[in-house]
Amino acid sequence: MSYGMIINDSSGNPIYTMSDSTYTLLAYYTSPANTSVTHTGVPTNMGTRIVVRQIVGEITGDNEAYAHTYSLSGSSLVTSVPLANNTMETFFMVFGK
């Protein structure tokens, strides 16, 4: 590279360069079981954002264990219950780059 930035470690190996890529945590939320929630305040100042979700806790009983669906638009992460009384608590993390 002829310009930009290289961060080396103490051995001179590059840790970070302008050709690298990463995801930075923008926000995280928990949507309670069986409850649709709109989370606000998601930072919008990164061009690419992704959402990772994970069911929280162990699936038990006769719960069909749906995860919340979601849509991310602007500063809002809208999470919805696919099936009443059968949706697990769902953890969301929004990353950006």
Partner: peptide, 10 residues
């Protein structure tokens, strides 16, 4: 793409 932003946790 953002590589480092001091406002956010990496």
């Amino acid at each position: 793409e953002v590589l480092i932003d001091s406002d956010f946790h990496h």
